[in-house]
Design a protein around this nucleic acid. Structure first.
Lengths: 242, 242
DNA sequence: CACCTTTAATGGTATAGACAACTATATGTA
DNA sequence: TACATATAGTTGTCTATACCATTAAAGGTG
């Protein structure tokens, strides 16, 4: 099931923690499943129950597990949603609003990084970057125009194929982990170049959203600029005190 | 210092937790201070060190304390900033951007709640509510128009005086604690009624922000609608994976 | 003085055990 | 059948102890 080395310099509770994380990752245990009881785990690996508890505590704090006294410990629901609290992909966002998401790829190419893109991705000006332009649809209607930049140094072998599926799943499969993101939102009037794609008339308001995403090691992963139709899109943020 | 009842049905670790929380609240211990060591606390109250650790663990997870191996456990910095991660007051926001904040009170009155306000504040339609209209300035220039609604049932004796100082400090002094907030952002074209206050011309884009704030017990505290000048204001959100 | 070693204090990890509180199931009883 | 009771299994709380890893300060040494 999972291996524990009691004489490793890595703490036992951490090994257990990682082991459980992995089993959930690999979908051996799925959302809602009971995991073995604390006593079972402690006997299974010949370690103290308190040590098992320490591991489980951490995972509960992370939101990966849920405890229920008298019943057991369960794999928490969600997982993707927990990815970046409040930061969801367009598709998830739309589905949550009860609409059918869609995407139209406008262009997929490698271009030379301009000043702003180079800065945002921490690469040299003129260095090659992926540029992905697409339109996001909701119930078949154009909702947003998006331009995404990523560095091939960080994300090699990106393809149209991958882009039309899920970029984030590909990112994860590369072992890259998203840690944080900064988004800026501002209002503006639609530009002429964007007008047709979004099926808007002159002077229509749009919501400009920029997203700058970072990995756990601090490296910038992507820089995305989006133009949303103001008449069809509201941005919602839920914030909790912690 | 603090009292512990070992035979209370309230868990000892929780009593310790509350005790520490209170001492920090009352500023007996301030940000950066060392608190007594785990061993000291355990001897002080005649309880096991592991029990003390459980209390401290929870406070560390909350972000109230910080551990440093070999050195001790310290009261974490911040506190106000930690109030609502990412949700700051206009004044703080502006100061963080290097501008001098200001406010012009346009009106302070009690009005009958309309349908939307009544809904948002969970009160009856037609019930009296405070309505505060003001303009937020940055470096003396109009930045946003704001209308705020609060129920006198929840927040009694609100006055112009309090409003012009800090509403949130007053809220806290009443023992009310903010737990969460939902903000929605959308782009729009400035309305005629808002145009003059914001010194905008026809067709200028604005950012509409609605904030709906809730207390720890789930009751809605306030409903705020703001209109920001798009040319002077960007909304920034930092999100971290947790 | 500057440098190394020792020592005491801190939090970090781990054990083995005990009892309480809660949940679900099985069992007995009217 | 319906209801109370026992029982086993779960997490929750708590103890007492041990040793490890890191830190800072005290003390010794050149």
């Amino acid at each position: 099931m999972m291996k524990i080395d009691k004489h490793s310099p890595i703490p036992i509770y951490y090994q257990i923690e990682e082991g459980i994380r992995e089993l959930i990752e690999q979908k051996v245990w799925r959302a809602g499943d009971v995991i073995p009881s604390e006593r079972e785990l402690s006997e299974m690996y010949g370690i103290s129950r308190m040590t098992v508890r320490q591991a489980i505590n951490n995972l509960v704090n992370e939101g990966l597990l849920v405890r229920q006294r008298g019943k057991g410990t369960f794999v928490a629901e969600k997982k993707m949603e927990q990815a970046l609290k409040g930061l969801t992909s367009f598709s998830e966002d739309m589905r949550a609003r009860g609409m059918v998401p869609g995407t139209r790829l406008l262009s997929f190419s490698i271009v030379e990084a301009g000043k702003k893109v180079a800065e945002k991705l921490s690469i040299a000006m003129g260095a090659p970057v992926y540029e992905v332009k697409r339109i996001h649809l909701a119930d078949g209607m154009p909702m947003a125009l998006e331009v995404l930049y990523m560095s091939p140094q960080l994300v090699p072998n990106l393809s149209e194929e991958i882009v039309s599926r899920s970029v984030y799943e590909y990112i994860e499969s590369l072992g890259l982990q998203i840690a944080s993101a900064r988004q800026t939102l501002e209002a503006a009037i639609v530009r002429q170049s964007e007008q047709d794609w979004l099926e808007l008339s002159d002077g229509a308001p749009v919501l400009l959203i920029e997203r700058h995403t970072f990995l756990t090691d601090g490296r910038p992963l992507e820089y995305v600029k989006s133009v949303y139709r103001a008449d069809r899109y509201k941005f919602v943020i839920d914030m909790e005190k912690r």
